[in-house]
């Protein structure tokens, strides 16, 4: 639970920044039609780097303590396998959620 006003500051600034990111090249479209290759390669790394950075703490440290053998890491490995084999977002979420709920009922976990 956090203050609603903090959320609106984040929404406002996030909206302005995101719009600027989307618009900048479309506005200067007529003049600039290519990004320098090193910049393009750097931008290409962002999804993998940012998503991996978001996933690991949520999976391995849900309560702040490093936890390698628990329901969440196992469910995440299973979901990653489904994502890799099927590429289906809904199926990945479904299998991961089912696994984490089911593993929660295994005694000793």
């Amino acid at each position: 639970m956090s203050a609603p006003s903090a959320a609106w500051v984040v929404i406002g600034a996030g909206a302005v920044l995101t719009y600027a990111i989307r618009a900048v090249f479309l506005v200067f479209a007529a003049r600039l039609t290519s990004v320098p290759p090193p910049v393009r390669e750097g931008l290409r790394m962002i999804p993998a780097a940012a998503l991996a950075a978001l996933i690991m703490p949520a999976v391995l440290r849900p309560q702040g303590e490093l936890d390698l053998v628990a329901a969440r890491p196992l469910a995440a490995i299973l979901a990653a396998f489904v994502a890799w084999r099927t590429g289906n977002v809904a199926l990945t979420i479904g299998v991961g959620m089912l696994a984490v709920v089911a593993l929660g009922y295994v005694p000793g976990w």
Binding site: A49, L54, N88
Partner: peptide, 29 residues
Amino acid sequence: GFAVPLVFLALLVPAMHDRPTVAAGVAAA
């Protein structure tokens, strides 16, 4: 709350499709 990392996972796997993007993902993780 666990659905959130699962969504990211579903997006991450196809984003790691060649050697540089795999390296980026592993290093960040």
